[in-house]
């Protein structure tokens, strides 16, 4: 938490995305799922099983994140990421993430479903 307080706003937002992706990498799908916006879950992943299937198919086992661009609209952040397979087995994915920070380490995420 103190680390977050010492970060700039942009650094915090990137940290939140990294946290989400690290949960995926560690196969901790429940924690990752709990970070998602409720309406987003209703629209795309009504159950955690659906989300887990999607994440397993899409994301590589070991993730390298390349931040291409970050925009803000008020309190909403839109990040354009390249998700690279460190092992080279899966193709690089370009994906948009939406982050909304409520407080330190309290945030909501959604992403472009591809």
């Amino acid at each position: 938490m103190n680390d977050l307080k010492n970060m700039t706003e942009k650094e915090r937002i990137k940290t939140y995305v990294s946290k989400y992706l690290s949960y995926i990498e560690n196969l901790d799908y429940e924690k990752a799922y709990n970070l998602l916006d409720d309406n987003f879950k209703q629209n795309y992943f009504k159950t955690i099983e659906e989300f887990e299937t999607y994440a397993k198919n899409l994301y590589p086992d070991i993730i390298i994140v390349e931040y291409e661009e970050m925009q803000r609209q008020g309190k909403y952040f839109i990040l354009y990421l390249n998700i690279v397979d460190a092992l080279g087995e899966k193709e690089t994915i370009t994906q948009k993430f939406i982050v909304y920070e409520l407080d330190y380490n309290d945030f909501i995420i959604s992403f472009e479903v591809i």
Binding site: D37, N39, F40, Q42, N43, Y44, Y76, I78, K96, F97, I98, Y100, I108, S110, F111, E112, V113, I114
Partner: peptide
């Protein structure tokens, strides 16, 4: 509501 859509599409 971009949190609800994730800007999908």
């Amino acid at each position: 509501d971009i949190l609800a859509t994730g800007l999908t599409g």
